[in-house]
Each structure stands twice: as structure tokens, then as C-alpha cells.
């Protein structure tokens, strides 16, 4: 299989092509540094993303409070995590850093508040 990526390791944005099978990466081309190669390999084997959103607040001043995953979650689980986040209503007062959802969908990441309510 073959996939074209744009590297985000630095502002240069090299176009990278990765050739791979189900079990191994055959080649990485187009990158101009080692960080590009590492980025491409991770993108194929285990792509993750930080997730930020907001959660409903009951009884607070503001209707919602912003949240983030305290570590990146698998990219293909972003929408499932959003479903969980949107099903929660947290009671005011909310403090910055407060854990809103522990270990969301078994990813090992907590969803934490990023502002005070």
C-alpha cells in the first residue's frame, strides 16, 4: 500500500510518501530529515491526536466549559470520544484541571477542564 502525507514535524511541510504492508513499512520517501521519517512511521502505525472540546455545565454561569484530553488519543477514536464528551453534564463549580471523564473509552487519556466556571 502507498500513502501520501504532509509532514508536520516543522514548518517546511515536506510531502512524504510511505509504502507499507499490513505488517511492515517498506519505504519512506520525500522527507528531508529524520524527524520526517519518524513522523511518517507513526502516522501509519499509530496515529494519535490531542482532542479539545467543551462540556455542558449544570448550574454554572457559563453554559459550557472547555476540556482537553490530557494525552493524545488514537485518531480513529476522535468521534467516539466526542460522543462521550457530549453525553456529559458536569455540575458547577468546575475548576481548571478537574477530571471530567476518567480514562475515556479505555484510551488511558483523561478529559480535563481547561478553564474555571
Amino acid at each position: 500500500m502507498k500513502r501520501d502525507l504532509t509532514c508536520v514535524a516543522c514548518p517546511l511541510g515536506c510531502p512524504i510518501t510511505v509504502e507499507y504492508t499490513d505488517t511492515e513499512i517498506i519505504s519512506v520517501t520525500g522527507n528531508t530529515c529524520k524527524r520526517g521519517e519518524a513522523y511518517a512511521k507513526t502516522e501509519i502505525t499509530n496515529p494519535t491526536r490531542s482532542l479539545t472540546s467543551s462540556v455542558k455545565v449544570c448550574g454554572g454561569v457559563l453554559p459550557v466549559v472547555p476540556v482537553k484530553s490530557d494525552k493524545p488519543v488514537p485518531k480513529d477514536m476522535l468521534f467516539d470520544c466526542m460522543k462521550e464528551i457530549n453525553s456529559v453534564c458536569v455540575k458547577a463549580p468546575v475548576k481548571i484541571g478537574q477530571v471530567i471523564i476518567e480514562n475515556i473509552l479505555g484510551t488511558g487519556a483523561n478529559i480535563v477542564a481547561t478553564n474555571n466556571d
Binding site: 490531542s50 479539545t52 472547555p66 482537553k68 481548571i96 481547561t114 478553564n115 474555571n116
Partner: peptide, 9 residues
Amino acid sequence: ELSGPEYAA
């Protein structure tokens, strides 16, 4: 790496 509200806080 912080979110905007965290930086402001």
C-alpha cells in the same frame, strides 16, 4: 502546550 484559557488563567 496549553489551551487558550489555560494560558490566560
